[in-house]
Simulated scan of single mutants.
Amino acid sequence: MWEGLKSLLIWLGVVLLILLWLPLLAITRFFDRDKAHYRTGKLFRKLGHAISKINPNWQISITGNVDIDDREPYIMVCNHLSQADIPLISNLPWEMKWVAKKELFDTPVIGWMMKLAGDISVDRRAADRKEKTFEQARFYLEKGCSVIFFPEGTRSRNGKLNAFTRGAFELAIREQKPILPMVIDGTQNTLPKRSWKFGMAKQIKLKILEPVSADNYDIQDTRAFSEHIRNQILNQLSEWRNKEAEEIDNLA
């Protein structure tokens, strides 16, 4: 009973924050002359930060290489465990354009906000989806703004690490931009699928690993580059969970 009431109050707070943020975002975008819509995007990320703060079930610790200049653009990648990952990663003090499926952009209010912030829409049914995604990402990288991918493509259903798609790594090699790996854990039960109730997550961890240069890789090395970054993320999860890497690797 209490958990249901608490979740209801949290959702009410989320709705109120979104209703407050939408006009603020629209006004900011109107006056935002930066071609990367930097200020607008950064304001949108602060919504995620605010949402995470009103949820008493979510406590996040952020460690690692947090002191970066986000106007020296990176291609950021992170494992994906829950829809809660997005507001929780938004606790980082950087602007980064999110690469997300088109269906999210078609969602009323949230989709409008993503468009205002300049996030990158991917139509998974389009034959030229990679080229269009790269074109949008390249635009922001050239304007000094980072982009972020979930290279697993979707949330892990069992908390283990899925295979990585290679798009982010091919983009890094083409544009000669470093990959900035991030690792998140503890969000697995924070927002269960097909449930409106928030789960408990007292030990959410987010770590920013050291950037990895793409200088030593060619296009034919995309798979090796992807596997190198994936192993870094897998090893960090293994350390946190005190388990062998094979136990939390869906490819094992």
Rank of each mutant, 00 (worst) to 15 (best):
N189S: 08
I54A: 01
A127G: 06
K53I: 01
L191I: 04
V122Q: 06
K102S: 13
F164V: 00
D119L: 04
D34Y: 03
V66C: 13
I248G: 10
H80K: 08
I18D: 00
E210L: 05
L251M: 12
Y74M: 04
L22H: 06
W21Y: 13
I208C: 11
K197P: 03
H49Y: 13
S121D: 10
R124Y: 05
V147C: 01
A163T: 15
I86C: 06
W112Y: 01
F134L: 11
L209V: 12
N158G: 08
S61R: 11
T63A: 09
P192V: 00
S226E: 00
R174L: 14
V109I: 15
E142A: 10
N250R: 06
M96I: 06
P108Y: 04
A214R: 02
V122K: 07
K101C: 09
K205H: 13
E175D: 06
D67N: 14
E175T: 12
L16A: 13
P73S: 01
L22I: 01
L237M: 14
P93Y: 09
A224W: 06
E246R: 13
E135C: 02
D185V: 11
P178C: 09
E95C: 10
N162Y: 09
R71W: 05
G4V: 13
T107V: 13
D34C: 10
W196M: 06
L47N: 01
L16I: 05
L116K: 10
G64V: 02
V99H: 04
L209D: 08
I54C: 02
A117W: 04
E131C: 01
L180N: 08
P211A: 11
Y74S: 06
L12C: 10
T40I: 10
L251Q: 13
N231L: 11
E210D: 14
F30A: 14
R166D: 14
L47W: 07
R138T: 15
V99C: 09
L180I: 07
P211N: 08
I248H: 09
L24S: 04
L43I: 07
S90G: 02
A84G: 13
A245D: 10
N91I: 05
I179G: 12
L206T: 12
E175V: 05
K207E: 15
I148W: 14
H228E: 15
F164N: 00
R155F: 02
I219E: 15
N79I: 03
V147G: 02
L237A: 05
R39M: 04
Q232M: 12
D185K: 12
E135F: 04
V14W: 00
Y217S: 07
F105L: 01
H228S: 07
I10S: 00
M114I: 01
D123H: 03
F164G: 10
F169Y: 14
N158W: 08
E246A: 15
E103Q: 06
D123V: 00
K143G: 02
P151H: 00
I120P: 13
F225P: 03
E103T: 10
